[in-house]
Amino acid sequence: MTTLDRFDTSGLEVLSPADCLRLLESVTLGRLVYTVGALPVVRLVNFVVDADSVVFASADGEKLRAAERGDIVAFEADTVDLERQLGWTVTSVGHLSVVPADEAEQLAREIRLRSWAPLPSPRLIRLGIESVTGRRLLPWAQRPHD
């Protein structure tokens, strides 16, 4: 990737898939984007990255039904520092699935997943990352200039 290819037309740094996954692993709160009745829905979820997937917990409801159907969804996480005008955003796309109970029990012992909202009878849901893209706003001195 050349220096010019490293930035988009807005001057944001285009991140590699490896950088995107590393940044996703650095935060615990993201946004799941899916559809209900053909309309977009965005929900905050606490998550962990497990290899090439995002794992989060859900109670009964639309997220769980989307996972049971294997819906294609988007997932976004970011960090923004408004004072210093720095930040990044990563978006991944893939199919949802419900983690089988036996695997969920093992996975729950290995990961530290906490929900920001109380969940009665939570089930683990996996988003298999099929594509991941990201952008980062660098300090002014590191940005491309005309």
Results as ranks from 00 to 15, higher is better:
S131P: 04
G11P: 09
G87Y: 08
S97K: 10
T91H: 01
P122K: 04
V132R: 04
G37H: 09
L12M: 13
V45S: 04
F47H: 12
C20K: 11
G70M: 08
V14A: 07
S58T: 15
L44Y: 06
A57I: 12
L138K: 12
A74F: 05
R126W: 06
V42Q: 12
T28Q: 13
F56V: 10
S58A: 15
F7M: 01
A74Q: 14
L4Q: 04
V80G: 03
V14H: 12
G94K: 11
T133M: 06
R84D: 13
D60E: 13
A57P: 05
V14E: 10
S92F: 02
R126Q: 08
V90W: 03
E76A: 11
L23P: 10
L21Q: 08
M1H: 07
P144H: 04
L32E: 08
G30V: 10
V41M: 13
G37M: 00
V90A: 08
H95Q: 09
E105R: 15
F47G: 14
V41K: 09
G70Y: 08
K63Y: 04
R112Q: 07
H145A: 03
L39C: 01
L15R: 05
R114Q: 05
Y34E: 00
D8W: 00
R31V: 10
Q142N: 06
W140A: 13
R6L: 04
F7K: 02
H95R: 14
R31D: 07
V54T: 02
L113R: 11
T133R: 15
R112M: 00
Q106E: 12
A57E: 13
A108S: 15
T79P: 00
V48L: 02
L12E: 10
V80S: 13
S58G: 11
D71C: 12
P100Q: 10
L124H: 09
V54N: 03
G70T: 10
C20E: 09
S53R: 13
L107H: 14
R84C: 01
L29A: 14
E110H: 11
L127W: 01
P118D: 08
T9L: 08
T79C: 09
L124R: 11
E25Y: 01
I129H: 06
A101E: 15
L82R: 06
D60C: 00
T79G: 12
S92H: 02
A38W: 01
V41F: 02
L21R: 14
H95T: 10
T89H: 09
V27K: 14
W140C: 00
E68I: 00
F7I: 03
V55C: 08
D19C: 06
E76F: 03
P144R: 03
V93D: 00
L32D: 14
S97T: 13
E130L: 05
A51P: 02
A18P: 00
A38P: 00
D50M: 05
M1T: 04
V48Y: 04
P118C: 03
R135G: 01
P40R: 06
G70N: 10
G134H: 08
L137C: 06
E13N: 04
H95F: 07
R69M: 01
F7N: 01
T79M: 09
T35L: 08
R136T: 04
E130W: 02
D146H: 04
A104K: 13
V45C: 07
D8K: 07
W88K: 07
P120L: 08
A104E: 15
Q106M: 10
L64M: 05
L44K: 01
L96V: 02
V80F: 15
A108P: 14
